[in-house]
Design a protein around this nucleic acid. Sequence first.
DNA 1: CAGCGGGCCGAAAAGGTTTTCATAAACGTC
DNA 2: GACGTTTATGAAAACCTTTTCGGCCCGCTG
Lengths: 333, 333
Amino acid sequence: MSRATLRDVAKLAGVSVATASKALNGQPQVRAQTRERVVRAAEQLSFSPNTLAQGLITQRSGTVGLLTSDLEGRFSIPILMGAEDAFGSDQTSVFLCDARGDAIREKHHLRALLSRRVDGLIVVGARPDTRLSLGELPVPVVYAYAPSDDPADLSLVTDNVGGGRLAIDHLIRCGRRRIAHITGDPGYSAAQDRARGAVERLAEDGLGLAGGEVWFGMWSEAWGRGATRMLLERTPEVDAIFAGSDEIARGVLDVLHEERIEVPSRVAVIGFDNWSVLAGNSRPPLTTIDLNLEHLGRIAAQRLSAAMDGEPAAGVETFPVRLITRESTAPLR
Amino acid sequence: MSRATLRDVAKLAGVSVATASKALNGQPQVRAQTRERVVRAAEQLSFSPNTLAQGLITQRSGTVGLLTSDLEGRFSIPILMGAEDAFGSDQTSVFLCDARGDAIREKHHLRALLSRRVDGLIVVGARPDTRLSLGELPVPVVYAYAPSDDPADLSLVTDNVGGGRLAIDHLIRCGRRRIAHITGDPGYSAAQDRARGAVERLAEDGLGLAGGEVWFGMWSEAWGRGATRMLLERTPEVDAIFAGSDEIARGVLDVLHEERIEVPSRVAVIGFDNWSVLAGNSRPPLTTIDLNLEHLGRIAAQRLSAAMDGEPAAGVETFPVRLITRESTAPLR
DNA sequence: CAGCGGGCCGAAAAGGTTTTCATAAACGTC
DNA sequence: GACGTTTATGAAAACCTTTTCGGCCCGCTG
């Protein structure tokens, strides 16, 4: 397979490159018969237009950069998939860059992307906390998951407060009244926000947290186990546990199981993240909150497209999360 | 931030574009003082060369395509990271395309990538089974994880047979003699290969599988649990279980725990994949086999670079896996 | 029949860079 | 002072495509 250029096509079809171009691009000022000849020539040579050259004259490369901080983390991927999906592959291709959480590497990638004349940039953070703005750039940028610290930028984030509310709301609807909250690192805004949503929703029903306070700790199964043991000792009458992540929820379930406490009949458990390998395979399968990240990625792509078409936006947009009901929660009978 | 061209830089420095180009690219035939002037002008305008234009004349776009079949799957990501890492970001950027296992979409992406004049292609499959070759293309291709069915292509795969051997070898060294193997879907070559390696290694010590045969099933915790229950009923004297994946291993551990069978003192358990969220958080943490996928990705990038520089390769290269020792295995005392 | 408008087509410029080749200047040698 | 050499610079072509604009031919109108 070689590399045919438009010149070759034109020559084979017996026309000029100008008409060949117009014929292939569906411009009207070319006779049907001529167009036909050109199209056939193009097929015969399996011609594919050089996007670099096109980009040079149209001043649009048809590419965007996706700058992520941690690829291995599970949050970037769905966003990335949503974004990749929303840009039709024939219209726009995405450059993937993983900065590995390193500011130097990020600068590096940024330079490279601008040199490649990307039409726009999506920046997705590793955790939902505010991150430094990239500053003024010659192309539009949208921040996803982790908002920028500059309100002049456009940031798209998930509603963690709402997620906390939603979890508690569900538990209350299940008739639970003694609800505890075990969650991760208090240094994460995600942990704080979810906890705040939970407390607020409890207060609306005149309730407080079982166990007296939020159990902050780490984002791990081990912490889920440890906290649950302590909780059971201190507050054995607990009838529901809201875990700040599915990992923690797995630890919670594990200890409940070990203690022969039935889930959901005696204690209901709800997780967070809908990380399917954890939530779907647990015993029983875990009710949890889904962050809708793929949707977030799609919206990011749309907003970016709009900005590239001259309709910029700014501020922080918050997107709702949703409840995934499985078997670890059920109404008290 | 605007967009300075080389012309602007040249004008500001009071030279021609030709010398400006040479100055910035470190060509020798330019006076030090002149170079200095040009460099300063470039900085002042924060000039960044248009890679599209460069690619047009050098006939190298400095980009490669990464065509994956399932992004959400956990196997593509490490490979992708390794590859992205091996191409220095300033040299080569990678276009990410997820075909979602759909042949049509793959064709689509392929056309787009070729149109973008990528210098090469890495194709990473969703599962280690042989996949269809893309056929003859104008750029070099390397297949990673899933080998191509065409021996004229270059494929890079992990050594599943060796992985099976390694797992059993470790268990034997721990003094275990009654070893069972519970694994996933027999339709996966990965399952077959790992089982084969296991059986071979056992035979070398004159052993057979405890439980009489390989327990094929599904790649899920639930199957791990179910199979373990059946196994314990049939062969209660088992002293080690080799699970075909970490998910399965989690199910195995779960049932052993439930049955109050101590791990590793009475039964040792080894997993496969080193999926850290599962293997690292289990009780006890899981000894397992790591596929070294990031390394595979790096090698893929290297082989591709070599091919782009005119040193093509063909055939299937198999890469060793490695044992990750945690606490679910230990010598019998 | 002159003039005119419309339909098709091609020549040429543009986009930003690299590279080749010619030119100019400076220098050293006899 | 003439000539060959080296060194530094610039003009122009090339990469591939799109788009503008001018030209040609045709048929139609007056």
